[in-house]
């Protein structure tokens, strides 16, 4: 898929959610190309504020965290902790003038809900159009041109 929107979304996800294996990740990366960056984590509780900020700093227009369902964390409270960290990270980016909507948390409601990494990723990518390009990559020293994203090709 071509990256018509020129938006890059980062998705951190718990590896314990159903249908989130390596082959699913590879097929999503093939489908969405540079628009998507997927980060499988052993537990969403392993994700720290600095990971979310680095993604926004280096390449992402928006960041999503998908946890395992409520009550299903194999480490008991990893998916609760990440919620608080996302809130803290939101307050940090708001403090520097970046919209807090660029950070999102998805926690499936019940263990029995039908969901998968692919279905969430599809939904997220459909909504990518709502994001304007991140101002982090817009300006250079004199307010013109673009700051290069990490991982993008040299102009």
């Amino acid at each position: 898929m071509t990256n018509n929107l020129e938006r890059t979304l980062a998705i951190f996800y718990c590896r314990n959610m159903p249908e989130s294996g390596e082959e699913v990740r590879q097929s999503l990366e093939k489908k969405y190309g540079k628009s998507i960056r997927l980060f499988p984590m052993p537990c969403s509780g392993r994700i720290d504020i600095v990971h979310l900020l680095r993604a926004l700093e280096e390449f992402a227009d928006a960041v999503y965290v998908i946890t395992c369902p409520e009550g299903a964390c194999r480490y008991l409270e990893g998916n609760k902790r990440i919620g608080k960290r996302v809130e803290r990270a939101k307050s940090i980016i708001e403090g520097i003038g970046l919209e807090k909507e660029r950070l999102n948390l998805i926690t499936p409601v019940a263990v029995n809900d039908k969901f998968s990494l692919a279905s969430y990723a599809e939904e997220i990518m459909k909504g990518a159009i709502k994001y304007t390009p991140s101002p982090v990559f817009k300006k250079t020293a004199h307010g013109a041109g673009k700051t290069k994203r990490k991982g993008s090709k040299a102009p």
């Binding site: 900020l53 520097i96 101002p135 250079t140």
Partner: peptide, 20 residues
């Protein structure tokens, strides 16, 4: 972790302000 987060936030703030 907090040092990394603060440095990252400041770098973003500077980039948005066009401050190199």
């Amino acid at each position: 972790k907090e040092t990394g987060a603060l440095a990252s936030a400041l770098r973003m703030a500077c980039k948005m302000a066009g401050d190199e």
